[in-house]
Amino acid sequence: MSNAALAPSTAEPLLQVRGVHTFYGKIQALRGVDVDVHAGEIVTLIGANGAGKSTLMMTICGNPRAREGRVIYAGEDITDLPTHTIMAKSIAQSPEGRRIFGRMTVLENLQMGATLQDERHFDDDLRRVFTLFPRLKERATQRGGTLSGGEQQMLAIGRALMSRPKLLLLDEPSLGLAPLIVKQIFDVIRELNRNEGLTVFLVEQNAFHALRLAHRGYVMVNGAITMSGTGRELLAREEVRSAYLEGGAH
């Protein structure tokens, strides 16, 4: 597990978040956030409840919009584009709370994920997802809403992968799942990154697993980035350990 192998390169990052301020009405959720995600990296963003992690994720997707600052993907300013246009630029998202289409079958959910893809790729992509998550294949004809939490998370990731993304945005994939399932899902993310060079931006509360998985990490407190570094560095830091790993007071 060579986390340090992919240190930030000198090339331009695939995703740049520059000084982003986001508001919900009058309430400021993000206060000048800077985040870089380089191609081929797994980058994680950790933080407590309400820190603004998911808001950053959603701001990257254009809903809500950043009031100040820029979001640049592959050299293109995507700050003011509508969500569906952003998602058409080889970015895929597994949103917070999974948001499976409950009354539609697993297969239909995956078809929805492939909406933007050329349909000639569908069979190959479907097979790839079923290889990554054999459980989904068993449940192909089952309604999404009847899957277990772990299976739903697999479906959310599988659905996102159906659009052949270069950048995968994952919002708390470990939420509410048994530790063993979390491990399985994180193993798949690692595999995808290592074998296919998929770039992953991972928002997590489960700091320990996320930092072990990620090449680099950011810590967010009250809508601002307070720390950053490689996964190992952050894991080793006392503030991180006390705040996010041992449940200590912050």
Binding site: N63, T83, H84, Q93, G113, R159, A160
Partner: peptide
Amino acid sequence: IACRSLGI
């Protein structure tokens, strides 16, 4: 929301 996040 899921629809939009899938690029629809």
